[in-house]
Design a protein around this nucleic acid. Structure first.
Length: 339
DNA sequence: ATGGTTTTTACTGCGTC
DNA sequence: GACGCGGTAAAAACCAT
């Protein structure tokens, strides 16, 4: 298994038509294809050799023409099908969080409140002072360990999501940092750890301007995207984060690839978007994906790489109507040459 | 909760291959 | 006739207040 090539497979994870490209090992019986060596990369579009660039979005693009060579590689991670007790134990290490019904799992020592020993006699003053100190520390240590547990559970969820989403460590660190801030500010109490972990990741992505939708994150979480969105808002508000305005340009490489369009087209799309920005009033309040979709449609006509509105709509996750509206709007306002 | 704005849904008509 | 495209009204979603 370990030397089998890694190939790309397309999977429709939940049957809703949304397709995700994953890297996966082929079973050893089908190992005909030769292993891909990124070091011998030759751009199929412009022929440049080895000039790849890794964008902050995690996409790997040809440094010359911008063709996206490889989208984020998803590490599907282990299959958490636990058949034995051992596997189950392994799962608890990085998998779904353990539910502690009681914060100490019944393992801690309890110190009674009465200043009496087993036989009912009162403590001596020294003994009494010692017990009082012990009580104090028991309480303190309990608090600390519960914070620790919360944090470690959160971290394991963050790790899990990050690896399933195929994101880089930088994002992970940022998300973990945000979560830590939540703890320090006492905001995690009585809230879902998983939801806050997911929200931290989403916030980290937004801060880093990496285009991933709430839904994409929710797909790997057991929570629905609205819940995560709520927590995200809370997080932003409570931590006073200043979020960069989502920029349609950040979506372009991702979409171009999804549509199998030549990477060189990117420049044209970005041109249109830049014009739209300069013009003003066309960007604010609009779904950035819709904007990107419209610009891509325009560029596809201008550069003679026609794609249908439907394909664009599908790839960008907006409707055809929105593609139309944006592209019409852009053409009208920016007075783009005859189409 | 509310109201304003944008997106989606659903449907229709037109031209072309 | 299927397809791509354009337009529209009404419903739904979104967001700030």
């Amino acid at each position: 298994m370990k030397d089998t090539p890694i190939v790309s497979v397309i999977v429709d994870i939940d049957g809703d038509g949304s397709v995700i490209k994953m890297a996966s090992r082929t079973p050893s019986t089908v190992q005909e294809e030769k292993p891909t060596k990124p070091s011998r990369f030759t751009c199929p579009d412009c022929g440049a050799h080895k000039d790849v660039q890794i964008l902050q979005t995690g996409d790997i693009v040809c440094a010359k023409c911008g063709l996206v060579v490889s989208e984020r590689q998803i590490d599907p991670g282990p299959e958490w099908r636990a058949f034995t007790a051992d596997e189950k134990r392994a799962r608890t290490r990085t998998g779904s969080p353990i539910r502690y019904t009681s914060s100490d799992k019944g393992l801690s020592t309890l110190i009674g409140w009465q200043n009496k020993d087993r036989s009912g006699k009162n403590f001596s003053p020294e003994r009494r002072a010692a017990i009082t100190r012990m009580r104090k520390w028991q309480i303190r240590s309990r608090v600390h360990s519960s914070v620790d547990r919360n944090l470690s559970q959160a971290n394991s969820e963050i790790n899990r999501l990050i690896s399933q989403l195929g994101l880089k460590d930088g994002v992970k660190e940022l998300a973990a940092m945000l979560y830590r801030k939540l703890i320090v500010k006492r905001l995690v109490r009585s809230r879902s750890i998983d939801a806050l972990a997911a929200a931290s990741i989403y916030a980290a992505l937004r801060l880093r301007k990496i285009p991933r939708s709430l839904k994409e994150i929710a797909k790997h979480s057991h929570l629905n995207y609205k819940v995560i969105g709520r927590y995200y808002r809370l997080l932003v508000r409570k931590l006073n984060l200043k979020m960069p305005v989502p920029d349609p340009m950040n979506y372009v490489p991702k979409f171009i690839t999804k549509l199998n369009l030549p990477g060189a087209m990117q420049a044209k799309v970005l041109d249109v978007l830049q014009d739209a920005k300069d013009y003003g009033g066309l960007i604010t309040g609009r779904d950035p994906r819709g904007l990107a979709a419209g610009a891509i449609y325009i560029a596809s006509i201008l550069t003679d790489n026609r794609v249908t509105q439907r394909e664009i709509a599908y790839a960008t996750g907006v409707t055809e109507v929105t593609v139309r509206n944006r592209y019409k709007e852009l053409v009208r306002e920016l007075e783009i040459a005859p189409l």
